[in-house]
Amino acid sequence: MSSVTQIAPTPVAPVVTRPTRRRRVRKAAWNLLGVIVFLVMVFPVYWMIATAFKPGHDILSYTPQWIPTHPTLSNFHDATHMPFFWDAAKNSLIVVSIVVALSLVLAFLAALALAKFRFYGRRPFIVLILGVQMVPLAALIIPLYIMMSRLNDVKGVNHVLGVDKLGGVIAMYLTFVLPFAVWTLRGFLLGVPKELEESAMVDGTTRFGAFVRILLPLVGPGLVATSIFAFIQAWNEFIIAYVFLHTPQKQTLMVWLASFTTLRGTDWGPLMAGATLCSLPVIVFFLLVQRRIAFGLTAGAVKG
């Protein structure tokens, strides 16, 4: 990508040379702590994945089976052969990609306005955007549904928005993701040291040029954090998708996952296999974008 990312990460590296032995011991201690934190945090995830590989009768057991002793792929087979799995996967990908792309673009623009301009209505907008997030979703379901079902009757709009339309769900997700995204990006923009912008100005670039060339890479980590957030929100949302999407072919993965639970109990193995499969795209997405966080962007910009 841009030249900025070439620079290797420089963690808070001590500049003054210290006794290397002591340094190494300290580093080892930090690493050990890091590994412990990793294990504690990841355990429930591990438990999900391990369960996905256990045959059904091994799942409930009085002494925990730390490692699947009879690993099997049958849960994955069962899960992927449930009706509508591929439809659901496709729908989820569509919803998520649009929500991520649109929310990043719209939020960046709005955050730019809020962080770098003073204008009439700025404060009310900030307050509004905060307030939007405070309304409990459960209370909005009925009013939202009433509106969406009316949109179904509006010519022109009803191709995209309305009940049982992916577009409607996407629009609703955007309203939940956007406030957060705007806010976070604004925070990152405010965090950009002034000197950088100023130097850009001195360089004689236009305002817009300065924004794009200097700010965009600088808020890179913010964009990444925001996109992960948007991705996960849209990917994991259940109740809106369940209530607003009727046709089975249009439902998303979370709705599909819920079908593992019936009155007769939950089919744990396939559920965990399904959930493991559902986590994969998130991980892939994260691995694709995480370099943007890990690399010292600002350092590069200052030097460049």
């Binding site: 569509i94 191709h159 995209v160 339309k165 577009g167």
Partner: peptide, 9 residues
């Protein structure tokens, strides 16, 4: 792509 997929229905 998604917009076209989302709108058809």
């Amino acid at each position: 792509v998604a917009a076209s997929a989302a709108s058809g229905g």
